[in-house]
Design a protein around this nucleic acid. Sequence first.
DNA 1: TATTGTTATACTCTATAACTATA
DNA 2: TATAGTTATAGAGTATAACAATA
Lengths: 150, 150
Amino acid sequence: MVDVPDAESRFDEARRLSRLLIAIAEQAKSDFAEAIAPLDLPVPLARAILQLNEPAPMRDLADHLTCDRSYITNLADQLGERGLVARVPGDDRRVKLLALTEAGVAMREQISTAVAERNVLMRRLSDTERQALAPLLEAVLRPESSAPPT
Amino acid sequence: MVDVPDAESRFDEARRLSRLLIAIAEQAKSDFAEAIAPLDLPVPLARAILQLNEPAPMRDLADHLTCDRSYITNLADQLGERGLVARVPGDDRRVKLLALTEAGVAMREQISTAVAERNVLMRRLSDTERQALAPLLEAVLRPESSAPPT
DNA sequence: TATTGTTATACTCTATAACTATA
DNA sequence: TATAGTTATAGAGTATAACAATA
């Protein structure tokens, strides 16, 4: 009975961890915003650019960013106005791919570097700590089916 | 030189962890929303209620939720309409405290339970994993001044 | 008939600025 | 003069519904 916490204290602990996680996520979010501030690019556009490693159907982007297709149209328009992406026709003629322009690729590089440098995980954790953290975060995201090995 | 990753791979690793962290935070956010959906209460109101352990000046709430005082007025109005909180005068007569009503306390209990039960950290991590995770999350949030022990 | 992207519109969350009443 | 809360307004981010083109 020594090592098995009762249900209530497990809940309390999970709540405490949740609060920590939320605080970290908020920190990460504002880190991201601050990192890209000099680039004069709204956060959602930056997030979209980071997704565009390869030209991709707008539909795929909607899936990856978990948002509506109409919002992708909106983002694509804004990115187009800035000359950062172009719509290119797909094989299936209903489909349009979004592809970074040359300027878009350069911007992606800038975003990526700025964000990594300011990253709270870089600033506050040692190499050892980061190595310990990775498998735990992966465990949180493992598929629903796999129950935790209690 | 074996154990010291070069700068580039450290960046890559931090980026990977960041993506994981963001994915988890999004999961946690939608878990929260789903958990409280049956309660028919908007997310920001639920978050505010969770803060109101004790009656607190509206100003304090603004600090804890890191938002503008005017928004707290907004939240307090909505919570008031639902009969969940009441404004009570403070000693300093400029100050108003927000206090949960009886219905508010009951709602807080419901939110708290629903959220803890659905919590992704409860669902996917073992007790052991949660115990390992806590100090790492705390390290991420430690004050800027304390450099990581590389 | 189902799917892709678009358009027009509207909603939620939150901030800014100007105000009031105290201190 | 500075602080707590309020009001009115505005903006960012995102969704819904109806639609056109293609499959």
